[in-house]
Design a protein around this nucleic acid. Structure first.
Length: 796
DNA sequence: AATACGATT
DNA sequence: CACCAATCGTATT
């Protein structure tokens, strides 16, 4: 343990330096070696505000690590053992649901922007170039990389590293175009492929491969362009595919064959940092625990389950088992949209407000492109010392226009300015974000409330004729449009208030505020209605709520009708909403009970058949047989398609066509999980057990007290017990999976040492990977026998 | 709900 | 000469 502390401490010291430096520089003929590069970067960096802030951030991470290590000290042998059992039960579940039947491809265009620029200007090909600006580079070509010039590096530093560097300004339009061309080709292989930004995509080519088997031989040829800058990773799931595509720079492809052992071999010595979702911080934290490779990640799974949040450690587990999405989920709805800008110091309130407005305008445009409205506005500020601050406020009526957003943002900005007064607010960045988008259901409500609010028959007729356009116009042209929704919101707020759950003070304040607003509106709207009434507008009126035609011409009466309808709906809404609420609000109350019952029952059932060894999936298996394959150069042939694609397109196409090389899928043997010859965890992780503890050891499997105080022999005993349980479990596997797994129990037991360490390893950032992936992916084989086999997950 | 953070390109 | 980004999702409180 002391060793680890040392490791942690030593890594603290050089942390900043390393981070600002680089990794793999293949010292080429020209170019710089690592040391020189790091030195230049340091010289350019030291003393800057930026650097100071980096140091500060680094300190914070170190503190987090310290806390974590303190928690770790408190973990007892018993806790760890118990956790081991819990986690290993889950491992078995996960193993059972491992799905190797899909073929996922991750396509990555290497140095995409630079490649496009070089294509359009061949002169650049021989030179070191970077795309971006003096203050920030987006990417660089391989020449430049030899000098240590890399993405996300400020241009002025890059120039110091490589004085001959050519910096090409960004041209997103162009990249977008090229990207589109590429996507068209990708779509031929998987119409539902998932683009990730301009230069990356996932494809699920499982079906395509099947079709392709029936193609005539000549159509299945392909060729290979050695100038290609496209990388392709091929694997049974997205996570592996992505890591594969990173494997074979600068081009070519890498494949993990759909066999469990091949996956584990691939992961065996893979540094965790290579895993998507594991970044700088997580890497460092895990390193402090002595975890660097994926197999080490697996070995420490029990400890991790005690030190990290559930989401985090489950993600770790998925990683170390090589599990990931085997299908491409369609774009989940976006949850927020934002825009931000960096600039040289701005410190006058006036400029700041103007800037803020500008940002709101930009954001409003983007929002409207996607037809989104959100309830929460967040202002982000970075001061000249690089300290970032965000301030948010959510309003009852959702916002989407410049004015609406600005109205909220300016208040936030105002309070920030006030907070530092009389000093000026000195900022170098400002951003605005809108989140809390309306759900589909809420949109409907809103529509109803809008349509029902004051539309005369005439307007409705109009709406019906050109529903989309008129709606749009309606929103954008009427400045008070936004308030229409607010009435409904108010009603809902009132309902919520009635049905409890909101602290009276808070909600009352908001409601009063809101009342003012909407009653004023109401007057205005009433006026409109009256105007309409006075005009000739007189047609058959269809109630927008119940959709029945109304005979009366009297608007007052019609309104009364609508009110009635609304309140009828109102009742229904209340029911629905309270239903929803109850599922949300009550969860904490009744679910644990349910869980406990469940766990107890399970505990009883499993007392003598507790399964859980890492035998099943011991990543550190000594087998060195590496089944991953690498595809070499291929013989040219003409494209099977008619189109005359651009170079880049050709490249991608050809890359894709290499799919025809795939061997037929191997019929995987999913039952081969439990190789008895492999080593058991107890031994490998025994160095974690706190030998100072003097208490008698009780086997957590058979519950009997063990005479020995020797941990090694104790572990051996536990292993034997575990094996018994496992064997029993396997013979009864038909029943086993229907049980629900959950970790509530372990969380409860160890809640004292959980969390605080803050989150780590977000399982999905830009890439949307759900925490459920593992359980969702039920292999075909498993499906047939255990279709109900699921791992139920409980979220807070 | 508000804020901070980590990851990614 | 210049002196370190933009965007998103999620954990935490």
């Amino acid at each position: 343990m002391d060793d680890m502390k040392k490791a942690a401490n030593s890594s603290c010291n050089d942390g900043v330096l390393l981070r600002m430096g680089l990794n793999d520089n293949k010292a080429g003929m020209q170019g710089l070696d690592k040391e020189k590069i790091n030195k230049i970067i340091m010289d350019a960096t030291k003393g800057s505000r930026f650097y100071e802030n980096e140091l500060k951030k680094d300190q914070q991470v170190n503190q987090r690590i310290e806390k974590m290590m303190q928690l770790k000290e408190k973990v007892t042998t018993q806790q760890l053992l118990k956790a081991q059992l819990q986690v290993d039960r889950l491992v078995i579940e996960l193993e059972r649901s491992r799905n190797l039947s899909s073929t996922i491809v991750h396509v990555d265009m290497d140095a995409f922007y630079a490649a496009v620029e070089m294509r359009d200007n061949p002169e650049l090909k021989e030179k070191p170039i970077a795309v971006g600006s003096m203050s920030m580079l987006s990417t660089s070509n391989y020449h430049a990389r030899r000098f240590g010039v890399r993405a996300a590096m400020p241009g002025f530093i890059a120039k110091r590293l490589c004085p001959h560097l050519t910096i090409v300004p960004l041209n997103f339009e162009k990249y977008g175009k090229v990207s589109k061309e590429v996507r068209e080709i990708l779509a031929e292989y998987d119409p539902n492929f998932m683009p990730m930004g301009l230069d990356e995509a996932y494809l699920n080519i499982t079906e395509h491969l099947e079709e392709r088997l029936n193609w005539p031989e000549d159509r299945r040829r392909f060729f290979f362009n050695t100038e290609s800058t496209t990388r392709i990773g091929i694997a049974p799931n997205t996570m592996l595919a992505k890591m594969c595509s990173d494997r074979n720079k600068p081009n070519g492809q890498y494949r993990i064959s759909p066999e469990r052992q091949a996956v584990l071999d691939f992961l065996k010595d893979l540094p965790i940092r290579k895993v998507p979702g594991i970044g700088k911080v997580t890497e460092k934290m895990l390193k402090a625990l002595g975890i660097v490779t994926c197999s080490e990640l697996y070995q420490q799974r029990a400890l991790l389950s005690l030190l990290f949040s559930e989401v985090s450690w489950r993600n770790f587990l998925d990683i170390s088992l090589g599990l990931g999405s085997t299908h491409l989920e369609k774009d989940g709805e976006r949850k927020s949209m934002s825009t931000e800008r960096t600039f040289s110091e701005i410190n006058t309130a006036e400029d700041q407000y103007n800037l803020c407005r500008e940002l709101c305008r930009d954001l409003a445009q983007d929002l409207q492109k996607e037809g989104l409205k959100g309830k929460t506005v967040t202002l982000k500020l970075k001061n000249v010392n690089f300290e970032v601050k965000t301030r948010a406020s959510t309003v009852l009526s959702s916002v989407s226009t410049e004015e609406e957003i600005f109205a909220v943002a300016k208040d936030l900005l105002g309070t920030e300015i006030d907070s530092v007064a009389p000093h000026p607010l000195r900022i170098r960045l400002m951003g605005v974000r809108v989140s809390g988008f309306l759900t589909e259901e809420e949109k409907k409500y809103q529509q109803r409330s809008i349509t029902s609010f004051l539309k005369s028959g005439k307007e409705i007729g109009f709406l019906r004729l050109q529903p989309e356009k008129s709606n749009q116009e309606y929103f954008t042209k009427n400045s008070e449009a936004s308030h229409r929704g607010s009435f409904f919101d108010q009603k809902r707020a009132a309902r919520q208030l009635n049905s409890e759950n909101i602290s009276p003070n808070e909600s009352r304040g908001k409601q009063l505020f809101h009342d003012d607003k909407s009653s004023a509106n109401f007057v205005e709207e009433r006026k409109k209605v009256t105007d309409l009434q006075n005009s000739n507008a007189r047609e058959i009126f269809t109630c927008p709520v119940c959709f029945e035609e109304q005979s009366s011409n009297n608007l007052e009466e019609l309104n009364r009708h609508i009110d009635g309808c609304l309140s009828g709906m109102h009742v229904k809404d209340t029911v629905e909403i309270s239903k929803n609420d109850s599922s949300r609000e009550n969860t904490p109350n009744f679910l644990p009970q349910f869980k406990n019952e469940h766990v107890d029952e399970r505990e009883k059932n499993n007392t003598d058949q507790l399964a859980g060894t890492d035998q099943s999936a011991n990543v550190s298996d000594s087998s060195t047989n590496n089944s991953t394959e690498k595809f070499g150069q291929i013989i040219p042939d003409k494209s099977p398609r008619e189109r005359q694609p651009s170079n880049l397109s050709d490249i991608v196409r050809n890359m894709c066509m290499k799919q025809c090389l795939f061997p037929k899928r191997i019929s995987q043997d999913n039952e081969d999980h439990f190789d008895k010859t492999e080593q058991i965890e107890g031994t490998s992780s025994s160095h974690f057990f706190d030998t100072r503890e003097d208490t008698a050891l009780v086997c957590p499997v058979c519950n009997s007290e063990q005479k020995t105080t020797n941990l090694v022999s104790f572990n051996r005993h536990v292993d034997v017990c575990l094996n018994k349980g496992l064997i029993q479990e396997l013979t009864e596997k038909e029943d086993f999976p229907t049980k629900t797994y959950n970790m509530e129990n372990s969380n409860r037991v160890f809640s004292g040492c959980l969390s605080k360490g803050q989150q780590c390893a977000n399982p999905s950032q830009g890439t949307k990977r759900s925490g459920l992936t593992a359980s969702q992916s039920v292999s075909k084989k498993a499906k047939s026998s255990n279709s109900k086999h699921t791992i139920e997950m409980f979220f807070k």
